[in-house]
Every structure is written in C-alpha cells, then in structure tokens.
Design a protein around this nucleic acid. Structure first.
Lengths: 242, 242
DNA sequence: CACTAAAATTGGTATAGACAACTATATACG
DNA sequence: CGTATATAGTTGTCTATACCAATTTTAGTG
C-alpha cells in the first residue's frame, strides 16, 4: 500500500491514497471515512501520522470532521475551489476558453511613482508589457503589466509567448507565487479602450488592479486590466475569517 | 507564563503569547523567533505542542519557516489579511465608514426558480429583504437578500436593525458562516437604480451576486447588490493554489 | 416502551523521544 | 588564501502512548 522507503513522506502518500479512494467512489460524499485509529492500523503508521494527512485534507476542504462523530468527505462541489490567484491564461482555460495574446508593447523603462510605490522599488527598472487578451479569438481585456527587471533578468518577449507568465515563474525560476491583492471597480469605456475590445464607447467595463506577491513577500508584478463586462464576470471564492 | 489548568489548550496560549511578543516588539518583523526546542523549554511543554502553535501561526501568515534556518516573523502588512467573507456592515467598518440601512421591503415569499436553484431549495419559503445601504450617510448600494426561513425561523426586521446579519448568525444562532462565492460584473445604472443611489442614469455600477454557505455546506443566503462605482472598490486578497 | 446510565467510539490535546534533511559556521587541509 | 569537511543547530517526519471531551451506541431499569 504505502512505500516506507519513498522520499515522499508517509502522510503525503496517505493523502494521495485517500483522495484516490474518494474519487473512485470507495468513500462517498457526505459519508464517513474510517476513524483515525482504524486508518493507522490499515496503513501501519501511527495515529499522529494519519492525523497529519487528515488535517491537511481538512484544510483543503476535502474532508471535514466532527468531534465524537467522525471524519466525512466534503461535498463534491467544494472539491476544487475556484479561489486562488490565477493569470489570465489560467482563468480562461478554467472557463473552458482558449486564450491568446496580442503583444503591443514590451520594453524596459523607469517606473512611474505609482508603480514604484506599489512594487516597493527605488530606482530599479521594470519591464512594461501592454497586451490585448483574447479568449476564443474574441478580445476580452486590455492588460498592462509592470515587472521588476531584477527579479527576472532573463525575461524576454519570446518567453511570454506560449506559456502563462505565472506558469513560467513557477516552473522556470526559483521564485514561487504566494498571493495577490486586487481592487475591482466598474467604469465605462472611453474610445481608446472601446476600440480594441470591440465594444462601444460608454459600455460597462471592469477595471482590475492587481499586485502579485512572491512567497518571500516581495511584490513581483503590478497588473492593470480592463475587461469588457458583457463577456466577463469576475468570480471569487472567499472564506470566512475566524 | 502558561496556565496548565486552563480549559484553553496550551498551543493556543502559546500562540497568544507569541503574538503579544511580536506586537510589543520583543520579536521583530523579519527576524527569527527562538527555535522549537528553545520554546519548548521556556514554555515547559513538549516540542510537538510548540510546533502546533507555530504551524497555526504559519497558516495565518504571522510567521514563516525555512527548513534548517529557523522560524521568522512575517512582514507587518500581512498580519491582518483583508481577505474573508464580510457583510456590508463589516466591510464598511473596516474601511473606517459608518454603515446604516434603509429597509424598503421585508417579507416572506415563495422563491423564484433562480433563487430556489442557488439556495438548493424545494418548496421552502424565503425571507426577502430589499435595503439601501449607506456609508457615512451616503447611499452606497442597493441590496436584495434571500434567506431560507427554515434556517432562521425567528428572524424579523428588528433583529436586522442594529446588528450585521453575519454577526447575528454567529453570535445568536448555532450556525456558523464558512464561505461565499461571488460573481462581480460591471454595468450601467438604469433609472430605478440610479435614483436611490444618487447617481446618473448610465453611470458605472458594480453588480455583485453572492451565495453564502454555512460550515455545514448549506447555502444560507443569496445576496444581489448594486454598488455605485464612483465611491466603492471591491477589494480581494487571494492566495495562490498549490 | 421510555428513560437513564454506562460503555464504546471518535476526534482533540499533549508527551518524550528518534532520525532525516537542510543550513550556517567553524575547522583543518592543500 | 581558498576549499573541502566536519559539526552544531534548525525544521521536517514519525513513533508509541496517554488522557480528555464530545457523541453515539448499548445495556439496564423502571
């Protein structure tokens, strides 16, 4: 069942096995899984190890527990929470659409005061990207991105062509994305915005301003987007704070 | 230091003590706190107990850890993440504004198909509330709320007057709020919307549709809000999924 | 049959110790 | 002086056990 020699920790292997059993219907939604003590016997590990696996899954909403009653499989619809920071490409794919970009500008520049402030920069240069974002060949958003050069010195236009920038960071660099803060407001399109989005002047648009942070806490991008609102809804899943 | 007789678990008392020491500057932002072994000696508990306290604080972004290096105090600005599901009242207070309501409609009714679907109802009645939401005596939003009667049978208009509905649920009932899903889109105000918000027809507005869920997974409210966008920005903090 | 008390089961907290994986520092060697 | 190498310190994983608190189940009693 489990591989004691594997470099993967036991609790992780247990998590994977429980997930598999949930997906294959061995444990059903809303029903209880075996108790900690039972699982520790079947997996031949200590109860605390089983516990670590279960508590991780509770944090990920795959399970929930009730003292004195047991541990239960959470409802299916919460299995893959749609919360989370995503790039445009990831967002569109999740919605079943095919994203692509039209790169209008890619250059290095000295950031303006707002950008310096938001990205906590002093004199460092930033990449400036301006792109039109398409989903299924329809224009969806105009996006401007500012990225500190010193964080990704090897970045160039080619690298941003095929793959999502977020994916690039997480697979090709040592950095990892942790969180983002967004402000969202409504507005009406002016002519220069309406034209590339194929909408009319005065039509409703969403303005989204995002600051992305690495796991070190360092801000790595400022992203200002204008979405046409006839084709795009912002979806957000939030948890209640305790 | 710690009270072994207290009904509060040791790990919780340790968390509180560490938070206090961070706030009072005994441990500074970015610097390491004592190691698990040191803490387990000073608090006179086992290392695993210290560990439970620390891991909780890591989840809450108060601390972060690096294997082989130590445990560090996270940057100040992430101490109180603004993420989380909030009611209008809570949201406004957090922004330093004073909220109040004008209750236009409060009645029981048979829900329409959309509401029945979103709240997973069959034939149950719902409360229907229509309110104008004010912040510092300026109209901010028009809000319609649908709440299943059977979840809160004792609800009436008085109970929603002074206190936030979310606060009411968490303090006066056995239910607890867990999460919410929101969709946000931009639009332009029609006459009936513009009038109570003191804006002009055609001005930009944010339409927010929210479904709130209890910790049991049961949806407890459908909330449809129209915010004027000249005075309101939606703020959202999100974490990257792993 | 209905109610109550006891027992069993479950998750929650806590202990004491062991080894592994990783990091930084001091030390010895070329 | 620079470079390996040991070593001490850190977090990460895991064991085996114990008792507590909440809930459910069972047995007993009237």
């Amino acid at each position: 069942m489990l591989n004691k020699e594997s470099p993967l920790p036991m609790y992780y292997q247990i998590e994977e096995d429980l997930k598999r059993k949930i997906e294959s219907g061995i444990y059903n939604y809303g029903e209880a899984i075996p108790s900690e003590r039972e699982l520790s016997e079947t997996y031949e590990v200590s109860r605390m190890t089983v516990r670590q696996a279960i508590l991780n899954m509770v944090r990920n909403r795959i399970l929930y527990r009730e003292k004195g009653r047991g541990t239960f499989v959470a409802e299916e619809k919460f299995e893959q929470p749609l919360q989370g920071v995503t790039s445009f490409s990831e967002d569109m794919k999740r919605r079943g659409l095919t994203p692509h970009n039209e790169l209008l500008i890619f250059e290095r520049q000295d950031p303006d005061e707002t950008t310096k402030d938001l990205l906590q920069l002093k004199e460092e240069e930033v990449y400036y990207l301006k792109r039109i974002r398409y989903a299924d060949d329809e224009p969806m958003a105009i996006e401007e991105t500012f990225i500190p050069v010193h964080l990704f010195p090897e970045l160039d236009a080619d690298r941003l062509e095929g793959v999502s920038f977020y994916e690039y960071i997480e697979t090709k660099t040592a950095h990892s994305i942790e969180r983002a803060r967004q402000t969202i407001e409504a507005g009406t399109a002016v002519f220069e915005e309406a034209r590339p989005l194929s909408i009319e002047e005065g039509d409703a648009i969403l303005r989204i301003e995002r600051i992305g942070y690495l796991s070190t806490g360092v801000p790595f991008e400022r992203n200002t987007s204008i979405y046409r609102s006839d084709r795009y809804k912002f979806i957000s899943d939030m948890q209640r704070e305790k």
